[in-house]
Amino acid sequence: MTETRKQYFANSADEMMTTAEMLSISGLEAMQSTLNGDSPAAPIGKLMGFRLDTVEDGEVSFVGAPQFESTNPMGSVHGGWYGTVLDSCMGCAVMTKVPQGSVYTTMEYKINIIRPIPVGTEVRAVGRVQHAGRSSGIANGEIRGVADDRLYATGSTTCIIMKMK
């Protein structure tokens, strides 16, 4: 791994894993590689203010805090921030179940915003797999406050799993 790849977030497409590299390992191995700093994290985390926190078989968490740049015209955190973080943790949880030689992508997801997250409040988003088969994966997620475990949002997703080789 080059020094550039040891950065937490990728700064260009050249720093991301290639398709061949990704297909040569399981989804769990890919997620563990990012957590360990051997592969860079997706740039969306840097843009949206969250980072990978834990990786287990069937469960992934991200930690972050929405900033002013993620607010809507009313000054509250935009629903897209909740959606992005939940899509990431739920999809990456499914990714931990994807075998070597396969990829996944989100087919649909739904979020339920329970209450607004105050700007700058650190939260943890946890995604847990409910089902992972040959062609689909289903996961649920929650966003909770790190300091007080307060529930801010829930979500669910269906992902397609595709064998590539």
Rank of each mutant, 00 (worst) to 15 (best):
A13E: 08
Q7Y: 02
R51E: 00
S61W: 06
N11A: 13
M17R: 11
G27E: 13
V60P: 03
S33L: 14
M48H: 05
P43L: 05
F50M: 03
A10N: 07
L52C: 03
M22A: 14
D53L: 13
A30Q: 00
T2A: 09
K6G: 08
N11H: 15
K6D: 08
M22F: 14
A42L: 05
L35R: 09
S12Q: 01
I44K: 05
L28K: 02
G49E: 12
L35N: 04
S26W: 11
S26I: 12
G49D: 10
L28P: 02
F50N: 06
S61L: 09
A30Y: 04
I44T: 07
M31D: 01
V55T: 01
D14P: 06
F50A: 05
A30P: 02
E56V: 06
T4K: 13
S26C: 10
A13V: 12
N11P: 09
A42M: 14
R5L: 07
A13R: 12
L28E: 08
T34G: 01
E15W: 02
Q7P: 03
Y8N: 05
D14V: 01
T19W: 12
D14R: 08
P40T: 03
T34Y: 06
N11Q: 15
D53H: 15
A20Y: 07
G37N: 08
S61T: 15
A30G: 00
E21Y: 06
E15T: 00
L52K: 00
S61A: 14
L35K: 07
M16V: 01
M22Y: 15
L23T: 05
P40W: 01
F9T: 00
A20G: 08
M17I: 07
T54Y: 00
D57I: 02
G37V: 09
E3I: 14
V60I: 08
L47G: 04
Q32S: 10
T18R: 06
G49Y: 04
G27C: 09
M22L: 15
S24I: 11
G45S: 00
Y8S: 03
D14G: 13
S24A: 15
M1N: 10
M16K: 06
M1T: 08
R5G: 06
G49A: 13
G27F: 11
M16N: 02
D38S: 12
G37D: 09
T54H: 05
N36P: 05
D38P: 03
E29Q: 13
Q32D: 07
A10P: 14
S24V: 10
T18Q: 09
R51C: 02
V60M: 04
R51W: 04
M1W: 07
V60D: 09
E15Y: 02
V55I: 10
R51T: 09
Q7D: 11
T4C: 04
V60H: 06
K6I: 06
A41Q: 12
L28N: 05
D57H: 12
S39F: 07
P40D: 00
S61D: 10
